[in-house]
Design a protein around this nucleic acid. Structure first.
Lengths: 151, 151
DNA sequence: GAAAGTATCTCGCTGAGCGAGAGAATAATG
DNA sequence: CATTATTCTCTCGCTCAGCGAGATACTTTC
């Protein structure tokens, strides 16, 4: 059940996967009254929270490629939805800390939970060595795209 | 140089890859005076053209999850940019065929060309068997996401 | 040939995100 | 220390992508 793969086929597979993931995200977002940007922000905030990092509007906007006005609007929206809370940084009172609310974690759980479970289950059909190959492959491809972005 | 991979690490890699590809697309789009949606439409149109399929505004809007008003706007925009041309279908004169202009192919080339070359080059570091594993892995993951979207 | 169905477009509107710049706090310089 | 420069966030006014509702033109069905 093995075959010689043309590189272009893998390129199309990579693209197809991102299309599917984007659509999945967009559909989840609209089902929950969010915009795609809001979901991207939520993911970023949850990742940072798990890593114990402080996120400010500035950092969030930078990550999502929004200007400051757009970022303020985004943060307003997330706050209005009860997903995050603003809190002035007592160390540097120009800064605002974005704190993730319980509700955001639950939403994130709802988004990832099901899908991640399915993905992990599907990975069970692969040998450990194959999963390591997949890891190296994905790492290499991500590196190429990231490098191409710099140019 | 092989290791036992936790499934969650692969999940994060998949997500990271889509983030990078999305950013790459968004940056390419703005550099060329396009919106992300325009680029997605262009990709869809070029794929269809290569497969010899006829694309109508209806089909395009469906693929991109836009309603008819938004689709008309998108097609207007692409036409104004000289990327596509409208032509009434002589068989069923309610329909409009979207024809890809030369300029769109060149743009697509500019978008994919460089990146695809780099991706294919990076694939050269992998054994044929490893590439086949990657193919099976990506196919499986894409299938899982597509299936999850149905729900 | 009237009625129902399909494909596209128009109109008016909402709101995400932009550019410019104001305000508040901190850091650097004389 | 006072002043100037810098940093972070927010406000204001605006543009335009995309939506809902419905008009229009063409085709199929009965």
């Amino acid at each position: 059940m093995s075959e010689v793969v043309e590189p272009m086929r893998l390129v199309h597979l990579l693209r197809g996967l991102t299309v599917e993931l984007d659509l999945f995200g967009a559909e989840f977002a609209t089902r929950n009254g969010l915009h795609p940007t809001d979901l991207r922000a939520l993911i970023h905030l949850l990742d940072a929270a798990r890593a114990g990092e402080v996120v400010t509007p500035g950092r969030l906007g930078e990550a999502l490629r929004l200007n400051s006005a757009g970022t303020t609007g985004l943060v307003d929206r997330l706050e209005r939805l009860g997903l995050i809370r603003r809190e002035r940084d007592p160390q540097d009172r120009r800064r605002v800390r974005l704190l993730v609310e319980e509700r955001a974690m639950e939403l994130g759980e709802g988004f990832f939970g099901g899908l991640i479970g399915d993905l992990v289950a599907a990975m069970g059909q692969f040998e450990p060595g194959e999963l390591d190959t997949a890891r190296r492959f994905l790492t290499a491809m991500t590196g190429v795209v990231a490098a191409a972005r710099e140019t």
